[in-house]
Design a protein around this nucleic acid. Structure first.
Lengths: 211, 211
DNA sequence: CTAACAATTGACCGGCCGGTCAGTCGATGA
DNA sequence: TCATCGACTGACCGGCCGGTCAATTGTTAG
């Protein structure tokens, strides 16, 4: 029905995109040359220009493709957690953490993009943060979470902690006493969820909390 | 007493180092050329080679200089908090946060280095994390902090949350409902410190904490 | 005063950079 | 069967890349 294996434009584009993703994620945009992109994708340099115009064009396409995947996946995750039970936030954190764990190269890609002040990143982040903050706000209104903290700050706190965990994953081997991904997640959840529990009127916890 | 303004090797090296810091922090190693480094520092390209050998040589020198500053400053901060009072961890977080706030370009530099898998980074991080974890462990032994969490995970949690906050600072303008640096710090400390408070035997907080 | 030395310069190098273009090749529709 | 169109190639371009080197200049020790 379709074109044969040779001269399949879609397949070629996909191969170039994959090579681009690999190399850009590994070395960053500026450190990758069109020549190595060509070698890696198994096509001619000219063919990359034919399909994507310029090096920036390919970079944009790579980002767009990765973004679509990430955004889609993450939105599904957030929507899947719509059931209004008490563990909503906890499950949200776990899902986000697992997503990052399953997509370590996405973490690298977004870090490169942040450093290059890519606007696409901030738009998506903004939407997801807003979505998460809304959930937190509703949980606060129901009395399920303490309400003396900014919902956006709650979301950014766990996003920050999880993202940076995987951003520094390479080095963890040399950090003495550090645990596995799941052990960190477990400890983080203890701190995070207990820290977010509704405050007792009988305000017990003193000691360390006040300097 | 010393050499005049012209032909001052130390001053020249310093100027080149500063230009290198500016440009590398802004665009990353690969995206900076020797020519623009020369223009920025107001000297000849050859002179940079004379003083630093290669482009990598300058990059190493820039990193080393920044590292020395960072490491020194941060160690001072940690040692300054040696008084064994109850707010030790809280003050540690505040000091770390303030350091990052005062040195936003260091945050960018270290992010570039992380992406390039620079080993120097991990060595310093490793030492600081170990130092912080030791403090947490001692606080746990004294019953000032909950002891059912890995001390290293406690330290990485706040380091991660703070670092990433400043790493994404550029975008915060478009995140609705987000507060200032200090407001975030305040909210983070509420969650973090209350989450780390010693557990009551009468374990009250249920609801959200269990999925 | 001058020899010695380091700081500094500008011309120059081969090579790789991103990008272009004329042309070949192969599938497809009339 | 053949014209058409797009996938694909390889030779080529000017320019910038990091780096070298011989020569000049300023400083300083003897």
């Amino acid at each position: 029905m379709n074109e044969p294996a040779t001269r399949d434009a879609e397949l070629t584009r996909a191969r170039i995109l994959e090579a681009g993703f690999d190399l850009f994620v590994e070395k960053g945009f500026a450190a990758v040359s069109m020549r190595e992109l060509a070698v890696r994708s198994g096509v001619t340099k000219s063919l990359i220009h034919h399909h994507f115009g310029t090096k920036e064009g390919l970079w944009d396409a790579v980002k767009e493709a990765a973004f679509a995947r990430y955004y889609e996946g993450q939105k599904d995750e957030l929507l899947a957690a719509d059931a209004p039970d008490a563990g909503l936030l906890r499950n949200g954190v776990i899902r986000y953490f697992r997503f990052l764990k399953d997509n370590p190269r996405a973490v690298r890609l977004f870090t490169w993009m942040h450093l290059e002040r890519d606007s696409t990143c901030s738009e998506m982040d903004s939407e997801l943060v807003a979505l998460g903050a809304d959930r937190v706000r509703r949980a606060q209104e129901r009395g399920l979470l303490r309400d003396d903290v900014n919902p956006t700050h709650v979301v950014t706190t766990f996003i920050n902690a999880c993202s940076q965990w995987f951003q520094t994953l390479d080095q963890h081997g040399s950090w003495e006493g550090i645990g596995s991904d799941d052990e960190f997640l477990e400890d983080f959840l203890k701190i995070f969820m207990d820290g977010l529990a509704p405050q007792d009127a009988s305000a017990s916890h003193q000691g360390i909390t006040k300097g």
